[in-house]
Design a protein around this nucleic acid. Structure first.
Lengths: 235, 235
DNA sequence: ATACTTAATGGACGATCGTCCATTAAGTAT
DNA sequence: ATACTTAATGGACGATCGTCCATTAAGTAT
């Protein structure tokens, strides 16, 4: 075969070649663009394959071979499009964080202006199937663990946290204004801290045993905690 | 050197040999036992080196070479004493879980009989420096992530969780008896769920930013949450 | 002293890792 | 049609991985 390739070769039928190289190419569905050359699509496919692989077998066993096998792309693509495995991992972490926040904002957009509704929407979104599922909790956990040894992943991991925290704190500050006590800022700070800790704990709990987890019980518990801080809200 | 070792060789001075093989052996302190042959000590050293390596560079980069380098033992010891790297990881997970629970029980032994004191002792112990520190939170996080792909680690990871849960639930059931409402068991169940989630969330929070974490604020937040469920306790 | 058992050593081994690049294919400009 | 640019391919490469075992050292029984 290598001898064959060494020669001039414009004469073997292109159709046949195409079918052998990407043989079971029925995966087209809606993702595939018009042609076989589509660098943007290749990048997205590599990131998706990376996230899927991490979710399925863990970041420790996520190798270049496993990723390109799942993406059905060739070995050199990672180096071509990302410069190496590490940069691909960082890009995947960034993409994952952005998707989390886009979905979160989609969940709270109807609540705009009403801080209490925003908080409840954040809770429902963060604990909902779209954001909290086996795939996402495993990926989240993997990236958080890798952050200590990988500055790039750490950056996008903390960015996600910060945006969530700011959203929550802003809403709690609005609510805390209705309680004109002397410890206004303390109240908003404690509520923000407590809610984030509860949400993080819920993700850990879900990760440990997804099938035993009750989203309704989780929302109920968190609501009860917050209403303890703001007696005239969250009833 | 290999030629030298091939010969009979009982004649090179033992002292000199000892000094060259384990040259900077000032680490003796109190750990080293009487002689150089001590299988039990070797096992412990390998487990300790494994946990330290995981805490320092992450479980992904924890290789056989890194472990034996840190333990200052020879390459074959892992296979000799544990049968392979995986079994060593499982043994390390078991050891870690047992040490956690031993320390926890040490923290709650003075509170025996008083369920409210037990809960507060569990909280203080779980959030205390001895149990919650950079090393332990990183190891805890790594093992929890690895549990999905490793049944052995999963076993000892869930065992630790179960023992903590039982301790907490038992105490909350005692407390709930003082509130003779119709939803006694629900109350204890919710309190157990909420406290465990809060503690897990605190560990995640600490892991993400150890230096910004306040143990006092954490205890205060959790206490406020529980007193919301049990108004006549935790004041 | 000698024979025997057990602990420890450290290198050989095949497998797999991530990177890199020469080569080919596809698409565009003229 | 032809020249040129860019995307994609897939194997070669050295490095490193975990396992295994022949050999040696240490300790014990007689």
């Amino acid at each position: 075969m290598s001898i064959f390739l060494k020669m001039g070769r414009d004469w073997p039928p292109l159709e046949a070649l195409h079918l052998t190289s990407t043989s079971p190419d029925i995966n087209g569905s809606a993702a595939r663009k018009t042609s076989r050359r589509d660098p943007e699509n290749s990048r997205r496919a590599l990131i998706a394959a990376t996230l899927d692989t991490i979710a399925e077998i863990g970041i420790t066993d996520t190798t270049v071979s496993k990723i390109i096998e799942r993406a059905e792309l060739s070995r050199g693509m990672i180096h071509l499009h990302f410069g190496g495995k590490n940069q691909l991992l960082v890009a995947a972490a960034q993409s994952f964080g952005e998707e989390y926040f886009e979905e979160l904002e989609r969940g709270i957009q109807d609540a705009a202006g009403d801080p209490e509704a925003i908080i409840m929407a954040v809770i429902r979104a963060d604990l909902g199937e779209a954001l909290m599922n086996e795939r996402s909790t495993r990926i989240w956990h993997a990236f958080r663990g890798a952050a200590h040894a990988n500055d790039g992943i750490a950056l996008y991991s903390s960015t996600r946290d910060k945006r969530l925290r700011d959203t929550i704190r802003s809403a709690f500050r609005d609510i805390a204004r209705d309680y004109d006590e002397k410890d206004d800022p303390v109240l908003a700070r404690d509520a923000t801290f407590g809610l984030i800790v509860l949400l993080e704990g819920m993700w850990v709990d879900y990760l440990s045993n997804p099938h035993a987890f009750s989203r309704e019980a989780a929302v109920s518990i968190i609501r009860r905690f917050i209403s303890g801080l703001f007696p005239r809200h969250f009833r």
